[in-house]
């Protein structure tokens, strides 16, 4: 199983020198994008298949003190999108990090161009939900990818998200740590037990129709995310959960792709008693109100 996963990863994420890949349309992305029989918009896709159809993907990266990780995640994103021939932009929403995240983001804008990297900072820490709203105002793509900027989410999965979206014409594609080849790295038994236990309780109480509710690696149609942002009020873990629950209520379809979650390489990971209490509070609130 582990073997298969490694191969799968390798298949979607090959090193390819820029000079080689530029003129040749890679074979894999062609299969990834377009070609699916089920989506009802074949004409538009066929017209510009190699370039990822008419679709454009805006990645929202909310950051706070991610000076170390931000350039690395941007590099991985840019390489993944370029290798797959996907039209993209990366929107960095920095909440006034004191560690110089914005300074490094400005350097990235110079390297990749201001059409690919959009720096849209805010003055202070204002929370994840409003960061998405803020970022979306500047997004020109018709799809939005949300992910963590701390390298726990690898951009290599995004082409799989896109393929999945096309396959079922889904409104949302959610990465899941709990299915198939999905998993985590860097968690001890206690953390895993809490995660599995919390997930089980959530599944029993909310029956949400998606296996990973607290994950934050997802692909949304822009208008769907906009609609959901109007509805969702929770914070933290519960915010991601509410997004899926509300999506189900509104009749949106959700596809799932197994992902590996590699816990923060740099910096501290956080899961304390406070998080657990606020998670349970949020869960019960959703249970009683949705």
């Amino acid at each position: 199983m582990a073997e298969g996963r490694a191969n799968e990863a390798a298949r979607h994420f090959r090193f390819r020198p820029a000079a080689l890949s530029a003129p040749v349309v890679p074979a894999a992305p062609r299969a990834l994008i377009g070609c699916g029989a089920s989506p009802p918009r074949p004409v538009r896709q066929r017209a510009d298949m190699a370039a990822g159809g008419a679709d454009k993907f805006s990645v929202l990266l909310p950051t706070y003190n991610e000076r170390e990780n931000l350039p690395l995640v941007v590099w991985l994103l840019a390489r993944t999108f370029r290798e797959s021939g996907i039209n993209f932009e990366i929107i960095i929403i920095d909440d006034g990090s004191p560690d110089g995240t914005q300074e490094i983001a400005e350097q990235l804008v110079k390297i990749y161009g201001s059409d690919k990297i959009l720096l849209r900072p805010r003055a202070r820490k204002l929370g994840l939900g409003t960061a998405y709203i803020h970022g979306m105002k500047h997004a020109t793509g018709n799809f939005i990818v949300i992910m963590d900027a701390d390298l726990s989410h690898h951009p290599k999965f995004i082409p799989e998200f896109i393929r999945k979206q096309k396959e079922g014409n889904f409104d949302i594609v959610s990465g899941t740590r709990y299915k198939g080849n999905g998993g985590v790295y860097g968690w001890d038994l206690k953390r895993k037990l809490i995660s599995r236990g919390a997930n089980f309780i959530t599944q029993v109480l909310l029956r949400p129709g998606a296996s990973d509710l607290t994950g934050s690696f997802r692909l949304y149609r822009k208008e769907v995310l906009q609609k959901l942002m109007e509805k969702c009020v929770s914070k933290g873990y519960v915010f991601q959960m509410e997004m899926i629950v509300r999506a189900r209520q509104l009749g949106y379809t959700i596809g799932e792709v197994p992902i590996s979650f590699v816990d923060r390489v740099y910096g501290e990971s956080k899961l304390g008693g406070n998080e657990i209490v606020s998670f349970l509070k949020g869960l019960l609130t959703l249970f009683a109100t949705t």
Partner: peptide, 14 residues
């Protein structure tokens, strides 16, 4: 599910 929770060693190495 706890026992079968994947440890993504290769993902981390990669």
């Amino acid at each position: 599910r706890l026992a079968t929770f994947n440890d993504c060693e290769e993902a981390a190495a990669e």
